[in-house]
Design a protein around this nucleic acid. Structure first.
Length: 871
DNA sequence: CCAGTAGATG
């Protein structure tokens, strides 16, 4: 074991400086958000009280209007909120990486515009009926309009018509109607009204391009330069997720001298929420609104809450809610449902339940949306019992399920692999007249795919298309991922080709799935190329993408290139002759071919690459480049990143190589670094307090994330000879129930542990039963150590656990043997083990030592502590 | 101008 101390660079403990977010912001709430964001990035040493609001989280108006800041505990609306301990730290959602990257489902087009102030005449209704009846015939519509022209009463009637046609999806008829009306309308004002109604109708249907054309025409013709026209276009862009376009229109509106009004600001804020814009940026727009004297209303706040919900910023949402109350703005069911969504996405399920229980007192009764929000929160938190119970509660309250809540229910069953129940849900949906939609199919495809039921996957995919359902990006990426994970590369390739034919654009998730599949097959270099590729495509990789790659380093033999030099030549030969075209075509052909060839290579590989599990120097250099890019793109790491780095350290051949990786860890997070490095150097006593607080953070994660971190940390310590340090970590993990039920006197269950953690644990367990023996008690007649098969375990996966334990036991001379009927179990009998433990040399073998300790000559100290291991 | 559902890393 290499044990040269690392160079001084790694021993430096300069605190991690966060340079990404400005600290000094003039505004109260914004300041709070900035601080929050800082804390939310990774573990930091600055702990924020989760239950008590800090002064900076005081509602902004209280701060502004010079009144005494009102802490939330005095807030009449949340009397009980402050007494609720937060279920997870505010870091948890970010860490476990549960933040959604999905934008597709947020766009449910076609929601009807409630025509509240109906100033239209009955004639308009009649025209509508006729217009609907005459199928596709443009002339028929024209004739209807002409015949009623004299009776229709101004723009109100026409607006009603085109809105209602829009609500029925007949946007072409709506446009015809609009053109007909505008041509006949003399008043600019009314032409403007018609235009904004048309734009908003098209926006509602997701026809942004058409909306834009209407807007531009109207503006060029001189009647479109209105606040309403701009607002409608902003909203149209927002609805389709083009927040950047929405903001651009917003800016150009101001430049043309128009003053945004309440509706404009609401539309912009809403667009930001749908587009996933950072909360801080949206707050800037909100501030601008206040500065310009536009008073926010309920919808403004609801839209702001929606911004929080996307990022799971439950504290900000809570503060906004209080702020609404202070401003005297009433809440409605949207307010509550959006707040609840933010709270659920932030993992605060206990708080969510309290908020929901307080709704009836405000005469706002939870509806189907409220329930499905909470259900989804529970499901994502892994509390499936609670989720399913809520469906019963809904039944009891006679709240009927709708499409979304059925899909939510169905996806729970699909994820669990409870397919009978899933298909029961399908049947029930059908009997309610709700047909399976893309979401239903995607959930089913993912569910069946993860269980390896590919026949069912194929069947469903065909059925879907037979039902005239267009697969979307999520469908394709689910299928590609599922087939790749099942090594069905030609199927995956076929789906990919179909996806390209459908003209869809890949996104970060699809790329990440592809990258992961390359990584898992040892083609790290190709994965990195694909990473460059996606960046060039304008798709921003995220932490998941990087985690896959980091995790792959050192796992394979020397990586080789999929896209060899012959590829470039080939492209050139096939390229068209025009110089300009050559360039773009090359890119396009190269892009397609690259992925297709990668699949080809994967399909051709008979066996995965030999796993040497060693990290050559070159790979260290490669991984450093990857980290560099991650910093450049300002991609925040999470626990999984840290685990991956620690695991990479365990694959290093030398302490120096590991030091380089740890240095990267230091740049990411000083606390994780401090603990890992401290334990590695044997500064055990000095950093144990820091370690405790780190473990407190890890405890907030879901169990598999937490155990993966413990496993990674222990493995690294074990690998570098810090065996007693490893043992301390492992015992801490046991104390905190990281691996569920690990041991009893008769059985040690290692199946969720990595090999280092498991070995450290074996020592601890044997020492424990040794103390039983020396207390004079009898051991159980049968003793067993479970390693499992190493297959179903996410953490181990490669089946290294069993041989490692076997070697360890053999090496110690421990009298355990593989159980004849269960190859994943080592067994022995009480008397045999007792005899072995009583042998004079056994204790010395069992006690673990660190290769490096902080205090020179502290060996006696270790020995005196031997029998006092914190079990 | 406003709410809830489906896909990737450990």
């Amino acid at each position: 074991m290499a044990s040269t101390p690392p160079q001084c660079s790694i021993t430096a403990t300069k605190p991690y400086q966060n340079h990404q977010y400005p600290q000094n912001h003039p505004h109260q709430l914004k300041n709070h958000r900035h601080n929050h964001h800082n804390n939310n990035q990774y573990w930091t040493t600055n702990k924020v009280s989760l239950t008590k609001p800090s002064p900076s989280s005081t509602p902004r108006n209280a701060a502004k209007s010079n009144t005494t800041p009102c802490p939330l505990s005095q807030n009449p609306n949340f009397p009980s909120l402050c007494s609720i301990p937060s279920q997870k730290s505010e870091l948890a959602a970010d860490f476990s990486g549960r933040r959604s990257t999905r934008f597709v489902s947020k766009m449910h087009f076609g929601r009807p515009k409630t025509t509240l102030c109906t100033r239209h005449t009955s004639i308009a209704e009649e025209v509508l009926q006729q217009a609907i009846r005459f199928g596709k015939d443009d002339w028929a519509l024209e004739n209807v309009l002409l015949s009623f022209e004299s009776k229709l009463c101004g723009s109100d009637d026409y607006i009603f018509l085109l809105r209602e046609l829009g609500n029925r999806g007949e946007y072409w008829k709506a446009i015809r109607c609009f053109e007909f009306a505008v041509m006949r309308e003399k008043r600019k004002n009314d032409q403007g009204k018609l235009a904004s109604a048309m734009i908003s109708t098209l926006g509602r249907l997701g026809k942004v391009e058409l909306a834009k054309r209407v807007f531009e025409t109207a503006r060029d013709e001189g009647y479109g330069n209105t606040v309403y026209g701009y607002s409608a276009l902003i909203s149209a862009y927002g609805r389709s997720g083009y927040y950047d376009e929405a903001i651009r229109v917003f800016e150009s509106m101001k430049q043309s001298g128009l003053k945004p009004n309440l509706v404009t600001y609401n539309a912009v804020i809403d667009a930001c929420g749908k587009g996933g814009v950072e909360f801080n940026r949206v707050v800037e727009i909100f501030d601008e609104m206040l500065t310009n004297g536009v008073r926010p209303d309920r919808i403004t706040y609801n839209s702001l809450l929606a911004v929080c919900s996307r990022g799971g910023l439950w504290e900000a949402a809570r503060d906004l809610f209080s702020e609404m109350v202070h401003r005297g703005i009433d809440q409605d069911i949207f307010t509550y449902n959006t707040l609840l969504d933010a709270v659920c996405k932030g993992g605060q399920m206990d708080l969510a339940v309290v908020i929901m229980s307080e709704m009836p007192a405000k005469k706002i009764l939870p509806n189907v949306v409220t329930y499905s929000t909470i259900v989804d929160g529970y499901a994502k938190a892994g509390k499936l019992e609670e989720a399913l119970n809520l469906f019963n509660e809904m039944k009891f309250l006679a709240i009927g399920l709708d499409r979304v809540s059925y899909n939510t229910l169905l996806s729970i069953f699909a994820k669990l692999g409870r397919f009978e129940e899933a298909s029961d849900v399908c049947k029930e949906m059908e009997s309610c007249g709700i047909k399976k939609d893309v979401v239903t199919y995607n959930a089913l495809l993912g569910g069946y795919g993860k269980q390896g039921k590919y026949d069912e996957v194929r069947r469903l995919f065909l059925e879907m298309k037979a039902e005239n359902m267009s697969p979307n990006l999520l469908t394709y990426s689910t299928l590609i991922d599922v087939y790749s994970k099942g090594s069905l590369y030609s199927e995956a390739l076929e789906v990919f080709r179909e996806f390209k034919r459908a003209g869809l654009k890949a996104d970060v998730v699809l790329y990440s799935a592809l990258i992961d599949s390359l990584c898992k097959n040892g083609l790290v270099e190709s994965a990195v190329m694909l990473l460059d590729e996606m960046t060039n495509e304008g798709i921003r990789p995220n932490v998941v993408t990087y985690n896959s790659i980091i995790d792959a380093f050192g796992r394979s033999a020397a990586a080789e290139s999929v896209v060899d030099s012959s590829m470039a030549t080939k492209c050139q030969v096939e390229s068209p002759s025009s110089i300009v075209a050559v360039h773009s075509a090359q890119k396009e052909v190269g892009y397609k071919n690259q992925i297709i060839r990668m699949f080809g290579q994967l399909a051709a590989e008979k066996t995965p690459h030999g796993k040497k599990d060693k990290m050559p120097r070159q790979e260290i250099m490669d991984i450093l480049v990857v980290f560099q890019k991650m910093h450049e793109l300002e991609i925040k790491p999470n626990v999984i990143t840290f685990s991956a780095i620690l695991n990479a350290c365990s694959r290093c051949n030398s302490f120096e190589d590991a030091s380089m990786l740890l240095e990267e860890l230091r740049l990411f997070d000083n606390q994780v670094y401090g603990v890992a490095h401290g334990l590695l150097m044997g500064y055990r006593d000095n950093i144990w307090l820091q370690a405790q607080s780190l473990f407190d953070e890890v405890k907030q994660m879901d169990s598999s994330t937490a155990s993966a971190f413990y496993n990674a940390l222990t493995d690294m310590l074990w690998h570098f000879g810090q065996k007693r340090g490893a043992q301390l970590v492992v015992l801490e993990g046991r104390r905190r129930n990281v691996w569920e039920s690990v041991w009893s006197e008769s059985c040690l269950d290692l199946h969720l542990m990595s090999s280092g953690a498991a070995r450290a644990m074996v020592h601890a367990w044997l020492l424990n039963i040794r103390s039983v023996v020396f207390e004079g008690r009898e051991l159980p007649s049968l003793l067993s150590i479970l390693t499992g098969w190493g297959k179903h375990s996410k953490v181990v996966g490669d089946g290294t656990l069993k041989p490692a334990i076997e070697a360890l036991l053999t090496g110690m001379g421990a009298p355990f043997r593989v159980a004849p009927c269960n190859l994943g179990r080592f067994v022995s009998t009480g008397p045999v083990v007792t005899a072995w433990l009583k042998e004079s040399g056994t204790l010395k073998i069992l006690v673990l030592h660190d290769d490096r300790t902080y205090l020179e000559g502290a060996k006696f100290d270790q020995i005196s502590n031997l029998q006092m291991l914190p079990l």
